[in-house]
Amino acid sequence: MASTPLSSDSKHGGHSHVQPVWLLLGNMLWLMVLLIITWWASTFDFGNVVINNVVAMLIATIKAVFVIWIFMGVMHASKLAKIWVVAGFGFLFLMFGILGDYATRQFEPVSGWETNVPNGGASSFPRQWPPQKKPEQVGENFRPRG
């Protein structure tokens, strides 16, 4: 059978790497430990809710990395597979840019929107600059709770 390389990037031949049992077993046990840490972290208060959430997601991400790197064999996979993994998650983060809208959007009622509009309300654009700080109690959406 011809052994000519068919394309420039087909020569890496790392796929058939057989993973040792100890690595797979160790990885599984480590993931179980991480799972218990996940549960523990959810009951522990690290200071405030943002940090708590970040910690939870961090642990989940670590778990994901171990699954991808070892179980899915990306450790030994071709460069292309690695690029694909990074690109996939990269674009996912890009999509999370959608949240940027909500972070910078002013929910109604927007200060300056409903009252005191110059030229008799002809324009709906808020005329105060910089816009007034968001009030604590804005509509249904941001109801602070105990």
Partner: peptide, 9 residues
């Protein structure tokens, strides 16, 4: 996941 990884092995 572990058992599947083993089956691949």
């Amino acid at each position: 996941s572990f058992t599947v990884a083993m089956s691949v092995r």
